[in-house]
Design a protein around this nucleic acid. Structure first.
Length: 573
RNA sequence: CGGAGUGUAGCGCAGCUUGGUAGCGCACCUGGUUUGGGACCAGGUGGUCGUAGGUUCAAAUCCUAUCACUCCGACCA
């Protein structure tokens, strides 16, 4: 083990804040600012201070080790990339204003790389000539830039951020799958080693295309993504991806009589529900969307459900990309404002979500301003519905793996593995010669980890009212030594220094607080910055031959004898 | 880009309504007393009040423009 350098507060200043800067909204951002890990330079741009950088390096080290373990080769590509490459892949046009474009003094166009598919593909097409060189996987840890519309949450969604990105090249799909699985396993090991609670979820392949993609999410209530996972078994997916199912055949029979009722000024489902004093799940909402071959298609959902536009866009009748028609177009087609549209007597194709198709005695718009219909039933008042899966899964839906039901949790996306296919290799002509000496387009995979985001995500998951509670593998220092009255009691000071040398010699990273401050201040600082283990050296303790130790994740002190300390640490840290 | 809001010392804020030349807490510096859970006393450093114009004898305060930042939304992964 590499022997760490001992650190003292006199050489390694802590610059902590007692008060939370107003700019910070989420806990991780507040604590990182207070602990002095990061300082803001401009919107979405942060300087990493000494403490923050130590944590960042810890993450990097684990990521690097696991990448090397599966045979990935580290390289480093430029942050600035020529426009020609992006024009070749077609993304110069496709990528929006998120791509920061710059010109050099000769007026040549470049961009600050938000990702490196083009650069790596260009590199690979020059380096790789033969199937014998495949498969191969490159990775780098590098600063990326995405000109986010609204950077927020500190380093969690910054414009400039550090990412580990890896790209693999293959002669065939089987080889891609093998590497994909190896990468998936490496990611699982990385997050496990970092001490984080996470889930790998099936993800949408998005606009990049291709198939086979998983996102790795750190679970935290403040997460921006909703994840659906089965109460039993290991099924997990982005809520957008989780399918819902038709219920068993045999819908209940409606008993209510159909009525037209006035619902003046009730535009939204909530307003209709309040107006009629009915729960939202008995009301059906009708949305008009652009059709693939017709001007509009009506989608019917239960009032308490949310439309899933990814699912909708895959429906053969619905336009891809998905788009709602405008209120004025809707008015022209149905002669009712959007708040009062319903499936009854519509001249448009009507597609009904599975759950909405199960409803009986339901409420829906009457296609007349300010009027709704109550007690409506499929097959009686309306034709039997054409059904489809069109909504987001919700808590309690049957799990797609057939085991139990779905639970919804929030997650922070920290990793993404993706079977890219030949999107880039084809566009950029990255070919090798196969066994027959024939040129063949390579197949690619790409794999990202948000290194700087992991730091924030770890804090979201591990903190208390006193500050950060680092998992040991991420901690800037493993152990804090606090001498009480060290400057006045030479034996205490000497004992603390001996302990520092001993623990450092054993490979622990140690921060000795030699500031001579009141104990409360020292304790509070070490707790804020989240040091996993605190050792207090005092006259009282030395007289008894003991140290007082405390784990950051606990709130009780332990008295440990001088002789047993090393063993105790080995056992508890 | 649409909506809302905020810019006063490193951080958190007051002062603005009713113009009179800037203040509080924390942090920082000096001296002293303290020292097991964010000490106390005394003294001190630090701000052309986001910027530019305008009104006025006089602008942090009123007016106009502009910039930056924050929040909500759309967008992105």
């Amino acid at each position: 083990m590499e022997r760490p350098l001992p650190m003292r507060c006199s050489q390694f200043p802590l610059n902590t804040l007692k008060e939370t800067p107003t700019e910070a909204e989420v806990i991780s951002h507040q604590l990182m600012l207070r602990a002095g890990m990061i300082r803001r330079l401009a919107s979405g741009l942060y300087t990493w201070g000494p403490i923050g950088l130590r944590v960042l390096r810890k993450v990097e080290a684990v990521v690097r080790e696991e990448m090397e373990r599966i045979g990935a080769l580290e390289l480093l590509m430029p942050a600035i990339q020529p426009a020609e490459l992006w024009q070749e892949s077609g993304r110069w046009q496709k990528y929006g204003p998120e791509l920061l474009r710059v010109k050099d003094r000769h007026n040549r166009e470049f961009c600050v790389g938000p990702t490196h598919e083009e650069v790596i593909t260009d590199y690979a097409r020059r380096e790789l000539k033969s199937y014998r060189q495949l498969p191969i996987c490159y990775f780098q840890v590098q600063t990326k830039f995405r000109d986010e519309i609204r950077p927020r949450f500190g380093v969690m969604r910054a414009r400039e951020f550090i990412m580990k990105d890896a790209y693999s090249f293959h002669a065939d799909v089987d080889s891609l799958r093998t590497t994909y699985q190896a990468m998936f396993d490496a990611y699982s090991r990385i997050f496990t080693r970092l001490g984080l609670k996470f889930r790998a979820v099936e993800a949408d392949t998005g606009s990049i295309g291709g198939n086979g993609s998983h996102e790795f999410h750190v679970l935290a209530d403040s997460g921006e993504d909703a994840i659906a996972y089965a109460t039993e078994g290991d099924y997990a997916a982005n809520v957008e991806m989780a399918p819902t199912f038709p219920s068993k055949p045999g819908r209940a029979t409606g008993t209510a009589a159909m009525n037209r009722v006035a619902t003046p000024n009730a535009k939204t489902i909530e307003e209709v529900a309040a107006c009629l004093n009915m729960p939202t799940n008995t009301i059906l909402k009708t949305l008009l969307v652009r059709g693939r071959n017709v001007p509009a298609v009506a989608i019917v959902l239960r009032g308490d459900h949310e439309l899933n536009d990814i699912k909708a866009a895959k429906h053969p009748l619905i336009a891809d990309p998905f788009e709602l028609i405008t209120p004025s177009e809707a008015m022209a087609l149905t002669s009712a404002p959007v708040g009062s549209i319903g499936p009854m007597n519509l001249t448009l194709p009507v597609i009904v979500d599975f759950a909405a198709a199960d409803c009986v005695d339901f409420v829906c718009g009457a296609n007349e301003d300010g009027v709704h219909i109550t007690g409506a039933n499929w097959g009686r008042d309306l034709p039997e519905p054409v059904v489809a899966d069109l909504r987001n899964a919700v808590e309690g839906d049957p799990a797609p793996n057939g085991m139990g039901t779905l639970t919804i949790a929030r997650g922070i996306e920290v990793g993404h593995v993706f079977q890219l296919g030949d999107t880039y290799s084809k566009a950029m002509n990255c070919e090798i010669l196969d066994e027959q000496g024939k040129p063949r387009t390579t197949i690619m995979g790409c794999y990202g980890i948000g290194v700087s985001r992991i730091v924030a995500a770890a804090i979201e998951q591990n903190h208390d009212t006193n500050g950060i509670v680092w998992p040991v593998p991420l901690a800037p220092f493993a152990i804090a030594i606090i001498p009480i009255n060290g400057h006045r009691a030479p034996d205490v000071q000497a004992a603390a220094e001996r302990l520092e040398a001993e623990l450092t010699g054993l490979g622990h990273s140690v921060l000795l607080d030699d500031r001579g401050l009141r104990p409360g201040v020292a304790f509070a600082d070490m707790e804020l910055i989240g040091i996993p283990l605190r050792i207090v050296v005092s006259e009282r303790g030395l007289a008894a031959g003991e140290y007082e130790v405390r784990l950051r994740r606990e709130s009780a002190n332990h008295s440990v004898s001088v002789e047993q300390l090393v063993g105790w640490i080995a056992q508890h840290l």
